[in-house]
Amino acid sequence: MIGNIVDVTSKTANWLAALLLFCMFGHILYEVILRNFFDTSTFVLDEFVGYAVSGLAFLALGESLRRGEMLSVAILETVLPRRIWAWVSVFANALAIFVGAMMVFFIGRSALINLERGTTSSSVAEIPQVIPQAILCAGAAIFVLRAIEMTWKALGNAVSAERI
């Protein structure tokens, strides 16, 4: 049940990440056309594309982790006995929880401070900074849920490896 909710949110977030890729493509193309054929500009290109790039990366975190597409260097896997490697994997997944939790807490705190102060960007668009930061925080939160799920699985493996 909880696993299903995590699945649905992380897949949805991944689709949103794909949508952001479309958006940055559209925005840059629009800017190039405006600048060359209409001598004007959207005036917010680097700002908006910047939000899209970071949003893409964070929203796709959970799904990339699940699919095993997050790069890693497991050089000890072939060296260590299976039983010990299983525990190392638990540790490795716990590290992901730690880093994810740091991101959720401190990016979230920054978002809240910006919400409270009403901080906006200094461009013509005056985007409240809480919006992009809250998106990054949400992406990091999905990553933490995934990491917890994977740590749980790794723990199961380690325990069953002990029994053999």
């Binding site: 997050m70 890693s72 260097v73 000890l76 994997s89 540790f91 490795a92 997944n93 590290l95």
Partner: peptide, 12 residues
């Protein structure tokens, strides 16, 4: 890195 965690996690 050797623990096999994601590289970006290891760097952080």
């Amino acid at each position: 890195l050797a623990s096999g965690t994601a590289i970006f996690v290891a760097i952080i």
